[in-house]
Amino acid sequence: MKTRMGVLLLAGVLALAGCGGGGHGRDINDPSNSLVFGYVDMADAPTKVTGAQIRQVAPPTDKPYWGTDVKDGLFYTYYLPPGSYQLATLHGSSFLRGEHQYNLGRQGGDTGVRIDKPGIYFLGAYKYKTVKSGMFEQSKFGIERVPTPREAELLQKLLDSDAELKNSVWADKIRQRIARLKK
């Protein structure tokens, strides 16, 4: 199983600009939008995940980071225009362990997606893995692809938990997608 490696940063205060499902001023019903979502199990991580950012790697842009909404490990945004994207960072904090930023590297397409036409794109389900690092090395971590939860389950959860989404053009598209996945 391929593990995508990253660097874990611990800081008192982190700049979390771009967190939350901000869509760079785009409308939720914009027909060129795509819904991109994924899941990460942070059971073995120092914190839960409260924020995630997706990096636009093509076409070139001055504002490559797209915030996502996060619910119990499920992260998603429904504002992405056609292009190529990859999961960039996860954020989390806990009272005892402080603020953490989990940076995934720029290299590699295994948490990436190429959007040629608007639609629903699943980045996959992952599990956080601790990676041993030396005393003077940056703290590292990995995320490993896992088979569950499945795409249909996550889409249903999305539909059940996001009122804005439920009242948008996405509701029908998601239901259709779930139906196709369950065939």
Binding site: V7, L9, L10, A11, F136, E137, Q138, S139
Partner: peptide
């Protein structure tokens, strides 16, 4: 705290 490790390494 090991956050500045990247900077130290560089």
């Amino acid at each position: 705290m090991r956050a500045p490790a990247a900077l130290v390494a560089l």
